[in-house]
């Protein structure tokens, strides 16, 4: 087990710009620049055994007009979860796909493309999956107001308190 832990340190030595933080038991948080992230994932996979891409999460930060992409990687050998955080600007909202490293990435990248509108270069499949019949903007962006959309699109039923007393609606 120690061999893999040493190799993780070797990865960190090779990339001195990383901000590494141990946030809890079996949890490591890494802040990495956007252009260095694919290299980091490759080193983690090849040298430290982080084979399992658990998830890719996207967070919208409208204050700085940035998307934060978080890659959660798990190592079966050393039982540790690395969350690699990186930020990309709204404009142009493009990033590289890590499909060639981790095949499951295609599902998450497709999802992020659909929900946030981020385009992943090299991702083999970014067709709509969930929102095939959705015409509006990417709904997970903070600028999309779901309550306003619902009020515009749907009508509401009048509240009828007498139904509480007579659930059959007066039909018996």
């Amino acid at each position: 087990m120690n061999r893999e832990l040493e190799s993780l340190d070797a990865v960190f030595r090779e990339m001195p710009d990383l901000k590494v933080e141990h946030t809890g038991p079996r949890r490591t948080r890494i802040q990495v620049e956007a252009d260095a992230l694919p290299t980091l994932l490759e080193l983690l996979k090849g040298r430290a055994g982080y084979l399992h891409l658990s998830a890719i999460s996207c967070v919208d930060w409208p204050d700085t007009e940035e998307f934060e992409l978080v890659y959660h990687l798990w190592s079966y050998q050393v039982s540790n979860l690395i969350s690699a955080h990186t930020r990309i600007p709204y404009d142009p909202g493009r990033y590289v796909s890590v499909y060639d490293l981790h095949a499951p990435a295609v599902y998450f990248e497709r999802d992020i493309h659909e929900m946030f509108g981020v385009w992943f270069e090299g991702c083999p499949d970014q067709e709509p999956f969930i929102l095939t019949e959705w015409q509006g903007p990417p709904p997970m962006r903070k600028s999309f107001d779901t309550v306003a959309y619902v009020n515009d699109t749907f009508e509401w039923r009048e509240y009828q308190p007498e139904w509480a007393n007579d659930p059959s609606g007066g039909k018996g």
């Binding site: 999309f144 779901t146 699109t153 009508e155």
Partner: peptide, 19 residues
């Protein structure tokens, strides 16, 4: 199906089925 239930503010679900 009656009034949207707990998904009242969801952009994806309909609120009144009998429409």
């Amino acid at each position: 199906t009656i009034n949207g239930g707990m998904y009242w503010n969801s952009y994806a679900t309909i609120k009144l089925l009998d429409r």
